[in-house]
Nucleic acid binder design. Structure first.
Lengths: 346, 346
DNA sequence: AAAATCGTTGTAATCGATTTCAGTCCAGTG
DNA sequence: CACTGGACTGAAATCGATTACAACGATTTT
């Protein structure tokens, strides 16, 4: 029953103004700073607004105010469940700050560079949260024609952009220290691409904690497929060199690794211990429940959001924000079966 | 070494025009319809463009052209890995059509209604793909001030909006038919919220295929937690009424169900068969590999994208697009252990 | 030789909201 | 009574790109 503009388009601010018998300026004021307007006028305008079903035109407002009211998060791959909770935390925090969160996929490889260029634009977003470390170094930190940027989770080596991330090194250290404590002396690592910053940091931590233990590398790229492949490699190794425990740099790889081993009749953790990284929601619902290094994902998202908000507002911010990882002890790790009658030695 | 606007802002079209010695109109033409401009002029303009580092202002363009060049997908929960592949297919198809895909989370519950209202706006998106069925019926299909909308996966009962979705009824039928064929006579159903459209359709299919078999309902809401809870209920049932097979309406519930049973020493599929729904990427990497009903997720995304593109272009479109489900036979289902010495009866 | 046409370019209006600046009106003050 | 100041409102400029329209020279047509 509303008396809306039956016309093709929608009511604009001047229509509302006309109906209320005031100027467009006044309508604008009622909508953005009601305090400036006399009570009676305000009511008249409000009535006109609802009578016309008026809704602001974003393009016009953005053009005039030179801001968009939204922050864009660029992720390398929406398919990765790992990002889900991060984005959730981010969205909530941004909402509190009055921003909308929009997520775009950089579609790894292919159009990556192009997608990035398209969104790195102050006329599209007030700020950018970059969760993809594989962007061409570019001079992202020097160009003056970009909106504020913060990198989260991954980061870009060499660029001086603010970063929010897990202490990945410490995470790697925790995992290997745990396996060492259980008594494992030969530890497999299913890592990421070798130039990946997360890979490097976690590996550094792992090496630091290895001490006497030997680390054996399996190729990986964080995907299920590579976890499965690692399982085949592991199975094919001679007993002498085969690690008694494996540290996968993502829960997905750990999951696929375990599943493949199970298919081949190998039992986790009896025959081999497995520890993952991330603590995705599913990790505790796997068989066996996966021991892993937890990233506080919601906090990470929240932190990144907080920082981008501050940067947009021109406030000073921390260059690096490190969150602390935590070992989630579950059922996929155990002491190694003695190499030849092990347990009695204890 | 680029000679960029050193000034606070960026070069605008008039700066480029000045440098190239032409009018802004010509620059605009070079950028959008180069064919209209003489070769020499075109080159001069291109040079000026790269010399100034000019980049178009989206807000201005959107305002003038009355379009945004992007499509917004509204999902109820970014955390659900199920959406990942759908969004991926969607993004690619939209890119081919010249649109950007932006994803926003409706943040189930809380701000849902508000988020929706914010994005349902032609000045924000040229089209909306709604993956959340729980929006207030609203008169979404009748209002003339909204951009084109298509619902995908879920849909809104009663509204006459175009829909793209799996044939959920058929999916339910396939699952139960499979279990029947294996010889299960009492089948548990871990469903969704009872008013959920997916739940209803799948249940209808399940019932249609049940024939003599008895269906036993467990409460569920598609989450891991509810799958786990169902496992506890199942375990607590007396042998006489306990189903020998369970059909979960999501892979996540199936996964949590299996993991919990495993913890309690119950073996799948020996003691109970489990079938899921969705075929998320992880499904084949679970232990045991999960038998499930596959949704062609990428196709679904692609189809939804295609339809919104057509709607935006004003072309006629199909009101309902049904994709066909497929049974993915893996290791979590098997014939029931004979109620009392079963197998010999065959 | 005049007229019509084509290719190319510039002028200026336009999209819709915000905001500066300059009033107008009225109450309070000296 | 003239003046200051405050509360409120409107006129008009502005954000930056697009595009309808007009204009111009050069060529082709009649």
């Amino acid at each position: 029953m509303n008396k809306r503009m039956a016309t093709p388009g929608r009511a604009k601010i001047s229509d509302v103004a006309k109906l209320a018998g005031v100027s467009p300026a006044t309508v604008s004021r009622v909508l953005s700073r009601p305090g400036l307007v006399a009570e009676a006028t305000r009511l008249a305008v409000m009535n006109a607004v609802s009578a016309t079903g008026y809704r602001m035109n974003h393009a016009a407002r953005n053009l005039r105010k030179q801001r968009t009211g939204s922050v864009v998060a660029l992720v390398p791959n929406l398919g990765n469940p790992f990002f889900a909770k991060i984005l959730e935390g981010m969205g909530r925090e941004l909402a509190r700050g009055g921003y909308d969160l929009l997520v775009a996929d950089t579609l790894e490889g292919e159009g990556r560079h192009r997608t990035l260029e398209r969104f790195l634009d102050p006329s599209r977003a007030d700020g950018i949260i970059l969760l993809d470390g594989l962007v061409p170094h570019a001079d992202l930190d020097q160009r003056d024609d970009l909106p504020p940027i913060v990198t989260a989770c991954e980061w870009i080596e060499g660029a001086s952009l603010p970063r929010v991330m897990l202490d990945n090194r410490e995470g790697g250290r925790l995992a290997v220290a745990h396996l060492r404590e259980l008594g494992h002396g030969r530890i497999g690592i299913i890592g990421g691409p070798s130039q990946n910053v997360l890979h490097q940091a976690r590996l550094a931590g792992a090496e630091a904690a290895a001490e006497g233990a030997q680390l054996v590398s399996f190729p990986g790229d964080f995907t299920l497929a590579s976890g499965q492949a690692a399982a085949d490699l592991w199975t094919a190794m001679p007993d002498a060199t085969r690690p008694s425990a494996v540290f996968a740099f993502s829960d997905e790889m750990a999951c696929a690794f375990m599943a493949r081993l199970h298919q081949r009749g190998i039992s986790v953790p009896r025959d081999v211990s497995v520890i993952g990284f991330d603590d995705i929601e599913l990790a505790s619902h796997l068989t066996p429940a996966l021991t892993t290094i937890r990233q506080p994902k919601r906090d990470l998202g929240r932190a990144a959001a907080g920082i981008i908000i501050d940067r947009i507002a021109g406030r000073e911010i921390a260059e690096v924000t490190l969150l602390v990882p935590r070992l989630m002890l579950r059922d996929s790790t155990a002491a190694p079966a003695g190499p030849a009658g092990g347990t009695d030695r204890a």
